[in-house]
Structures are given as C-alpha cells and as structure tokens.
Amino acid sequence: MLMPFAMAIVYWGGRPYSAAIAFVLIILIFEWARIVDRAEFSRGFYTLSVTAIAMVYFAAGGSYLTATGIALGGGALATLLELRGKPFVSWPFVGAVYLLLPAIAALYIRHDPEEGRALTLLLFFVVWATDSGAYLAGTFIGGPKLCPALSPRKTWTGAIGGVLCGGAVAVALGILTALPFGPLALLALGIALSISTIIGDLGESALKRAYGVKDTGGAFPGHGGVLDRLDGFIVAALTLAFIMVLRQS
C-alpha cells in the first residue's frame, strides 16, 4: 500500500524526498533507542533526532562531508549525554553510523535529477525483488538454512532466489530507464545490491536476537516496525553509494 507513495516521493525528488528521509529517520531513531536501551524520548533520542534533521539539510544541498561530520558528531554528543548517571553506553553513536550514514547515501544517490531518479528507483525495486524472491523461493522450495543462529527461517534457496530476482529486476529496470550501464554491469549491480539486502536483513535479525525482541515496532501490524522493513535497504543504499563513488573516481 505504501509502494505507490514511496515511488511518487522518489520520482519527485527534491524537498519532498529529503523531508521523507528526515521523517523516516526520526522513526528509525525512536525504534533503535527503544530496542537497545529502552531509551525512547531520552537525551540520546532527542539529540540524534536534531542531528538527523541538520544532517539531511546539508546532505540535500550536496554537502555530504559536512553531513557526515554532523552525523558522527551528533552521535558522539548523544553518547556523552547518555553517560550522565549511567554506565558506559555507545548506542547513540552506533545508531548514528547504522541509521544516519545510509540516509546520506540515499540522498547522494538521488541527487542527480535524471540518473539519480533511475538509480534510486532501481535500488528500491531490487531490494523489494530480493525480499519477495527470497520469501517465495524459501517458502515453496525450502532447503538448508542460511544462518539458523541468526534467522531460523531463511534458507540458501531463498537467498539464491532473492539474488536472481534482484539481478533480473536490475537488468530490466536499468534498460527501461536507459541507465548508462550494459546488461552485464546491471546484472552485477543487481546481484551486489541483493547480497547487501540479505546481509542487512541478517544483521538486523542478529540485533533483535541480541536484545531479545521479535519486532522493532508495530508500524506495520504483522510485519513489525519501520526498521524491520528497511533493514536490507540500509546496507544496499550504502553499497550503491560506494559503487557510485568508485565509478566517479
């Protein structure tokens, strides 16, 4: 139900896209603070939230190094504020790296009016295709478990199905949007983003297992919180931004 809205925001870009990133970040910071320290509405939460807004402002204007400095500095400040009267904690700084840096990556990817739009659409669709392909292959084919210690339901068959779907979607969408990549490059890009999506999913599963929670929140009844929906996107966005930096260097 949210897919058409998300696609409209991505297509529009500009201020609506930046505002959507900032809004989602506040929710993610809230869920993160609640999971790791039951610290929603804490000094750390408020500091990271203000940091996120300032960071998005500079990243949306193309000042990515400044935005990165703000994200890391805000995480360090939030950590110091959380130390008052408590034993050592690091969750605000870890949260800044885990949540804020991928948001900078998402803004960096979308910055170019034409190619950025196509790449961001490709990113979203590859992540969705990977999740859907993994679910369908894992459900209907089954097979040995991928990493039972972290996620007992995920299978190798599901992971392979997800990667194949992600690669196919990247090739199809890249050709349709006339991205300046050949089919093999698009396939490689799709596979890289699909693997990143699976890694992000497993990483979030490890986080929830470590803190003994089933879902990060209740934003989507039956499907968990916003972080549950964006765990793969977080790592995939960093991967795509890194590839773009290498391409331009």
Rank of each mutant, 00 (worst) to 15 (best):
T79G: 08
L121A: 13
L150R: 06
V213T: 08
G44M: 00
F124C: 04
E31S: 10
Y57V: 13
K214I: 03
L240K: 01
Q248Y: 08
Y211G: 05
A170L: 02
I9V: 14
L122N: 05
I141T: 10
D231Q: 06
I199D: 04
V127D: 14
G174P: 03
W12M: 09
R229T: 00
L48S: 02
F30S: 08
A206W: 09
A105P: 14
I175K: 15
G75Q: 01
T130L: 05
L121T: 10
L48M: 04
W32N: 05
I195H: 04
G161V: 00
F233P: 02
L246G: 06
A67V: 12
L99Q: 08
F181S: 07
V235R: 02
I35R: 11
A192P: 00
D131K: 03
R84T: 09
L176D: 15
A206F: 06
T51M: 01
P4R: 02
D228Y: 07
A96T: 09
A59G: 11
K145Y: 11
L48G: 07
G13Y: 13
R117L: 14
G217M: 02
G158K: 07
P87T: 14
A237I: 08
G44P: 03
A6W: 07
L101C: 12
I191M: 10
F242D: 03
L176N: 14
K214G: 02
G200R: 01
A149S: 15
E204K: 03
T79I: 08
A8W: 13
I234E: 12
Y135C: 05
L81S: 07
F220Y: 13
A137V: 08
V226M: 15
A54F: 12
G217C: 05
A137W: 06
S151N: 04
G74A: 11
S194F: 02
T130G: 03
E31Q: 12
W128A: 11
F233N: 07
A78Y: 06
A149M: 09
F93K: 02
A236R: 00
G224T: 05
G174M: 11
G62H: 10
L25N: 09
T68V: 15
V126C: 01
T68Y: 10
F125M: 15
T79K: 04
A6T: 04
F58T: 15
L72W: 09
A59R: 10
A185M: 11
I243Y: 08
G13S: 10
G13A: 04
G62Q: 13
P113F: 08
G95M: 06
L99S: 11
I104P: 10
I198Y: 08
W12L: 07
L83A: 15
L230M: 13
A159E: 09
I70G: 09
T157W: 14
A54G: 09
Y17A: 01
T79W: 04
I9L: 15
G133M: 07
A105R: 15
A159F: 06
G14F: 07
A241Q: 04
V89S: 06
A192E: 11
R43D: 04
L240D: 07
G217P: 01
A103L: 08
L227N: 11
L107M: 15
L101W: 09
G167P: 02
R117M: 14
